[in-house]
C-alpha cells in the first residue's frame, strides 16, 4: 500500500474535522486573494521581480512534480518488491543422484505439513535448465552436472515459521537449504526506501530553493520601492498594510507560476511510456489513480510558502528601513 496515502488521508480528515476553523481561514484566504485594489495600486508593479517569481515558481513546481512522482513510484515499488518476495521461499536440495528424488519427496512431505505454506512444487529439469541458461548457455548437459533440486514454496501469508521449518528439514532432510528471500528482500526494500528518501529530499530542496528565490525577489522589490514605502509611512500606513500589498502580489505570482509549472509537469509525466508497454523501473514513474491529484497540492503549497516567505521578508525589511 502506498505509504504516503495515509498521510494525505489524515490531513484531509483533520481539515474535515475543523469546519468552523477551516471556514474562517477560508474566508480570510479569500479576502486576502481578493485583496484591496486601492492598496494594491499603492505599490507599482516591478518587472524583473515579477518575472523572477513566476519563472522560479514555475520551474520549481515542474521539478517538484517529478520529485513527487519519484517518491510515490518508489513507495509503490518498495511495497511491491516487499510483498512479492515475502510471499515466496525456495528450498535447495543437494544430494547424490540416486538420493535426490527421495530427499525431494521427503521435503515436500514436510512442507505439506508446515503451517503458512500454500503450495510447494519441485522445479522440473526444463525449469532448472531455463534458470541456468543465461549463465551457462542453452546446450547445458544438466543430467551430467550435480545441479541441486529447487523447490518453489508459495506462502499463504499465515504464520510461516522459517526457523522452525529449517530445524525440521535439518532433522528429516539433511542437506536441504531454505531461502526465505530475506537476504534479497532487505537490500531491495532498502534501495527503494533510499530512492523514496531522495524524492522527498528533492521536494524539500525544491521547496527551500523556491522560498529563498521568492524571498530574494521580495527583498529586491522592497528595496526598489523604498520611496513608495517612505510615502506610505508618511501618511500613516502600518507595516502590515505595506507588507500585505507586496505579500499578496508575490503570493499570486508564485501560485500562477507554480500552477503553470505543475500543469506542464503533469503533462510530461503523463507522456512517459506506461510500465505495461515498456516494462522496467523508470517507465513506472507516472502517478496512479488518486495519485494524479497529489501534484495539485503543489501550487497551493507554493502559494502558502510564498505567502510566509514574503511576509517574513517584508516585515523584516520594513523594520530595517525604519
Amino acid at each position: 500500500m502506498n505509504r504516503l496515502a495515509p498521510i494525505l488521508r489524515t490531513t484531509l480528515a483533520l481539515l474535515g474535522q475543523l469546519p468552523a476553523r477551516a471556514a474562517w481561514h477560508g474566508r480570510r484566504a479569500l479576502a486576502f486573494l481578493a485583496g484591496d485594489p486601492q492598496a494594491d495600486r499603492a505599490v507599482p508593479p516591478t518587472g524583473f521581480t515579477a518575472w523572477l517569481t513566476l519563472l522560479t515558481a514555475g520551474a520549481m513546481a515542474f521539478l517538484a512534480v517529478f520529485a513527487l512522482a519519484l517518491a510515490l513510484a518508489t513507495d509503490r515499488l518498495a511495497d511491491r518488491w516487499g510483498a512479492e518476495l515475502a510471499q515466496t521461499a525456495t528450498l535447495r536440495l543437494s544430494a547424490p543422484g540416486e538420493e535426490l528424488a527421495a530427499q525431494t519427496a521427503a521435503a515436500l512431505r514436510v512442507l505439506e505439513q508446515t503451517p503458512g505454506v500454500a503450495q510447494a512444487r519441485a522445479l522440473t529439469p526444463e525449469e532448472n535448465q531455463a534458470l541456468l541458461e543465461p549463465w551457462l548457455g542453452p546446450d547445458l548437459p544438466l543430467e551430467s552436472l550435480p545441479v541441486p533440486q529447487l523447490v518453489e514454496i508459495t506462502l499463504d501469508g499465515g504464520d510461516f515459521d522459517a526457523a522452525g521449518l529449517r530445524a525440521r528439514l535439518e532433522a528429516e532432510v539433511p542437506g536441504a537449504v531454505l531461502d526465505d528471500h530475506t537476504r534479497w528482500r532487505a537490500p531491495l526494500i532498502e534501495a527503494a526506501g533510499r530512492l523514496r528518501g531522495l524524492g522527498v529530499l528533492s521536494l524539500l530542496l525544491i521547496a527551500a530553493s523556491t522560498g529563498a528565490m521568492i524571498t530574494l525577489a521580495a527583498q529586491a522589490a522592497l528595496a526598489a520601492n523604498a520611496q513608495v514605502i517612505r510615502v506610505l509611512r508618511l501618511v500613516g500606513a502600518r507595516d502590515i498594510y505595506i507588507a500585505r500589498a507586496f505579500v499578496r502580489r508575490f503570493t499570486l505570482r508564485a501560485a500562477w507560476g507554480a500552477g503553470a509549472g505543475t500543469l506542464a509537469g503533469i503533462v510530461a509525466v503523463w507522456l512517459l511510456p506506461s510500465a505495461d508497454t515498456a516494462g522496467g523501473f523508470l517507465t513506472g514513474l507516472g502517478f496512479q489513480g488518486a495519485g494524479w491529484l497529489a501534484p495539485l497540492l503543489i501550487p497551493v503549497l507554493v502559494a502558502v510558502m510564498a505567502f510566509a516567505a514574503t511576509r517574513a521578508a517584508a516585515l523584516r525589511s520594513l523594520r530595517a528601513q525604519s
Binding site: R233, G236, A237, D239
Partner: peptide, 14 residues
C-alpha cells in the same frame, strides 16, 4: 510601537 506611531501620524498632516 510602530503601529502606534503610524496611527498617531494619521492625526498629523505633513
Amino acid at each position: 510601537d510602530r503601529d502606534a506611531v503610524a496611527l498617531a501620524r494619521r492625526r498629523i498632516g505633513i
